[in-house]
Nucleic acid binder design. Structure first.
Lengths: 347, 347
DNA sequence: AATGCTTTTGAAAGCGCTTTCAAATTACAG
DNA sequence: CTGTAATTTGAAAGCGCTTTCAAAAGCATT
């Protein structure tokens, strides 16, 4: 049995394709009565419009592109997976599809170009921007809407020319650090993420600013940039807790790291919140999020899933009305008190 | 500047659309000379065919659908992320795109149906089949090609009616267990994955079969079904290693669990491979894979990434020649000796 | 009943490709 | 040369929708 086309449906109803098409798209000029008729017949004949025909006729693809580069590790990291999940829900709600494309690093730009030229997508979302990201210039040249998750420049002036949504990493860590200081901690270590990425740089700045304002100078080996894994958290914490002079508080860039720190602390017989304060950045990842009434870890919280949903929403608006103002959204990551911090020695 | 269409290109060349189209698609009836001309002009005018026009004309979408259901945890698990990465590379190599769709559990079937009816995809890949999975019946009814990663039935007879690629979970765990027994272990625990999933059931069967053949009966609390996380590995191992009668070897269903077991063992002052043998299933996940010369863990290895690539390949063949035999591929997961196992007390 | 509006419907022209079928060209044998 | 077969090209008909523009129908007002 062949698929029913609009033509079939129109013939069946004794109406023109035009009216049927309008009826299904809920145009105001079609009477409710005929609309009802049309819908009934459509349901009966199990009609569904062919998306490629629609795309061709309307000149839009109703598809958003996500390109992920498989690095040496061929991996899609969990943060990105969560982000995609958030975006995907929003797409579905708006009738958009998500085109996920894998590319090696050296084919990345070509892939953006091809997808654009073949008109396979109406827009892109860029993830994990690096400083001065080349993709931004390319997409601007191609003239296709896009939204960046994060920013690619440190100076506000440079970020004015493209649309982005970011979380205020600097302010978040600043707030967290200040909080610890106010609680009486003067010896604070920071296990940051990889500082080749922009967000980690921002976090570092927040940390340094808070210390500076309190006239504190950190031990050089207390500010480290590492992969945000449990293992790294464990190793660095173990080291920190073995040195002669030990921090009374550790800030870290992910819940995973915090778990590693906890493991190290437990091994040393230290209790979190009493003997050692731990403060972390919590991306609220589905798998790792700390959703207890009183969270295990005191943290700056900012949901990546929601960021994905918001970005998707912004991009779709931008696609629909390209002339609207370029959205530049800075989210706050509020500090949520958990059980892993407590007063320090100077309290 | 407007996009150049095939018509523009043909006019520019003084040829017909037909010839140009054929030339670009490398039809044999077009002379190499004209082909060269066409290609040069296409490059010059920066021509790229509109994919929706192609799709409409050819009646195919060159797109494969992946539907992921966001469970209560809204998560895309790392195993799936890796699988997708493998499939994605293969799609790209064959000129196919990947449509990733998020759906809640109760909209899952409707989403398969919609994507099919709108002709958005040429085929599907089903992941994480549950016993008697309803999606299989649906897709068969819809008459769209699909491939299952894993199987949905325990009896070989029932799996004959659909295409799948699976790894021999039963045999893998059987081999691993037998190996431990041969090494002199009689007290073996098994931390399996969630037994609601088919693969976990298979693994359990392999475990039980090996024990039975050696006339061993496991302690009931030594066979547990749990989430495959580090935490679960840690907790169950801690429990196992605290009871009066302790296993001399633990088999588990993921590297993550093995890490948890290692943490528990270390905390008890036990050394892996000497005081306790640990054998795990290794999906060779990008992030967690143990690629040392002599791996940390003795493991049954089977790369999910490669499974993704193979399945994609099989599906594309099936789409191209729907009449071909239904592929049913069972991969082996070879046992690779690492440092985490050693002779047991009965050796 | 004729007039001018407003509302509702439809014919037909795209959208940009592929592909069928026929025509034109070339090659080759007689 | 001519006739026939093999090769190369092109006109035009879709693919299944949306949308423009024009026509028809409905309705109230004179």
């Amino acid at each position: 049995m062949k698929k029913t086309s609009l033509k079939d449906l129109a013939k069946h109803l004794g109406l023109s394709q035009t009216t049927v098409s309008r009826g299904l798209s809920n145009y105001p000029e079609v009477t409710e009565t005929t609309k009802a008729l049309i819908r009934a017949a459509a349901a009966e004949l199990n009609y569904a419009p062919s998306s490629s025909a629609q795309k061709l006729a309307m000149g839009r693809s109703f598809t958003i592109g996500h390109i992920v580069t498989l690095s040496q590790h061929m991996t899609i990291n969990p943060v990105y997976a969560d982000f995609i999940a958030g975006a995907g829900e929003t797409y579905a709600a708006h009738g958009y599809d998500m085109l996920l494309s894998m590319a090696s690093k050296d084919q990345e730009l070509a892939t953006y170009r091809n997808l654009t030229n073949a008109q396979k997508v109406d827009g892109f979302i860029l993830s994990e921007p690096v400083p001065g990201d080349a993709r931004i210039a390319l997409l601007q040249e191609l003239g296709i809407p896009f939204l960046v998750h994060g920013r690619a420049h440190s100076h506000a002036e440079d970020t004015k020319h493209y649309a982005w949504l970011d979380v205020d990493n600097r302010q978040g860590v600043y707030d967290g650090t200040s909080h610890l200081i106010a609680q009486g901690h003067h010896d604070i270590a920071f296990l940051n993420g990889p500082e080749s990425l922009h967000f980690a740089l921002e976090r570092r700045r927040g940390f340094e600013k808070a210390l500076q304002e309190a006239s504190l100078t950190p031990h050089p080996s207390w500010l480290v940039s590492a992969d945000m894994t449990e293992q790294q958290g464990y190793e660095h914490a173990t080291r920190l807790l073995s040195e002669a002079k030990q921090p009374t508080a550790i800030i870290c860039s992910s819940v995973l790291m915090a778990l590693g720190i906890q493991r190290a602390a437990t091994a040393k017989g230290l209790s979190l919140g009493r003997d050692l304060s731990v403060l972390c950045w919590d991306d609220c990842l589905s798998g790792f999020h700390d959703s207890a009434q009183i969270p295990q870890f005191t943290a700056m919280q900012s949901s990546i899933f929601e960021a994905g949903a918001m970005i998707a929403e912004l991009l779709i608006s931008k696609i629909i009305s390209p002339q609207s103002a370029t959205p530049q959204t800075l989210l706050k990551a509020p500090l949520v008190e958990g059980k892993s911090t407590g007063p320090g020695p100077y309290f």
